[in-house]
Every structure is written in C-alpha cells, then in structure tokens.
Amino acid sequence: MLEVAEVAKSFGGLRVLTDVSFTAPAGEVTALIGPNGAGKSTLVNLISGYLQPNAGRIQLDGEELTSRPAAKVFKMGVSRTFQVTGNTAELNVFECVAMAAYRQSKDFSTVNRIAEEQLRAFGLWRYRTRRLGDIPTAMVRVVDFARGMASNPKLLLLDEVMAGLTPAEVDVVIDQVRACRDTGVAIVMIEHVLQAVTALADSVVVLNNGQIIATGSMQDVSRSEEVRAAYLGRAATT
C-alpha cells in the first residue's frame, strides 16, 4: 500500500502541491484526476523519487520512499511511466522492457523471456525491433506500461498511458491494468480517458491547484460541487 502524507512541493516560488495526503491500497486502482496543471505529474515525480518533496512523507508498505533516489525507489518496487518522453527516440522497444525485467532476475535469458511475455501481452511484439521514435507516440506510453509490468512492481504509476489510443487499444490496456491489479499491485493511474476511469477506478482522488478536493468512488466525487466546478465543469466546456 502506498501512503502519501502531507506532501508539499514548490518550484522556486510556485507552490505546485500543498498538503497532499492519500493512500493507494494494493490490488486496487486509484485514479488520480484533475485539470491540467493540477500537479498530478509532479505527484508521480515525487513518489518515484524523480523529485524530492519539500515536506511530507511517502511510504510503500511501511517503507520510507521519501528522499530516496529514483534508482533506489525502483528497486523497492515502484515503476512509473512518463507522460512526456524526452530523448528516448533511439531506444529499442525490446531493450526498454528487458532492462526493467532485471529487477526480477539477473539472468539474461529469463529477462528476455519476461520481456517477450510482456510485449506479447500488450500486443507490442511486432514492434520489438523498432526504435521508440519509429512507433506511434501513443504506443510509446504502452511500451512504458509494459516496461513497468516487466519489473514486477509493488506500485505502478501510470501517467496518462491511454491518451491518443484508439478505443480498441484502450480495451487492451484496460485488460492489462485489470490483470495487473488482480496480481495484487497497487496502481495509481492518472487518466483523462473517462472510459478507462469508469471501468477501472476502485477509488478516485481529485486534485485541483495542488490540493486534494475530493476522494471516494467515481460516483461520489462526480456528485461533489467542488469537483464539478473545478474539473468536470471545465472539462465539459473545453
């Protein structure tokens, strides 16, 4: 179980997150939603050790993640996807997934077998010899997801992996998220594709202006006035 307690983060003078607390239990999908710029990606960056919080604590199954470097956090069982993939165009799809599988095994052929399993499960096998730059951008995030799965994580952080996918592809990914959840992984999913949130989320955390304004089931939060004002209302108009 992931526990985030009173986490705050600011960049220079800009306060991006204030007093954020929530939990994401194992074997459940926790959807993190909120308008653009709410601080969702920043929260993922904090949990995965990519950034350090200014205040607050982050724990996974009682173990401290706060102020651990990213590589250590990964070894402790946190896998993440990147919303914006920077300079990764040259990287090979198969190698990406295989590299993450080294968390499970040190053995060359085992690692390759895990990578193959994951690529096949996600329907990515045909891309295995390609560079990330040569496959559709939406697929890069699915590769990222497969990469996360290959590490057999305790916590999986998915940052808008479904953006830009066709409905058929969304279904494949939804099945994968379900399968992953059923193995007891805690999943934190940032998602704008409502089809996915409705289908998957066991609980929803709504973030706005760096603060949590509602938590609960999808039905609960969509009834909240504040959420409508902050998020659903705005999403409907844009």
Binding site: S48, Y50, F74, G86, N87, T88, N92, M99, A100, S151
Partner: peptide
C-alpha cells in the same frame, strides 16, 4: 544506451 539517451529515465529503471 539508456544512460546516453535519458539519464533520468535510466535512473527510474533502476540503473
């Protein structure tokens, strides 16, 4: 190659 292309991503893969 991961270190060359994106050290931050490499770190988040346990490298």
């Amino acid at each position: 190659p991961f270190i060359r292309e994106d050290p931050d991503m490499a770190a988040s893969m346990g490298i």
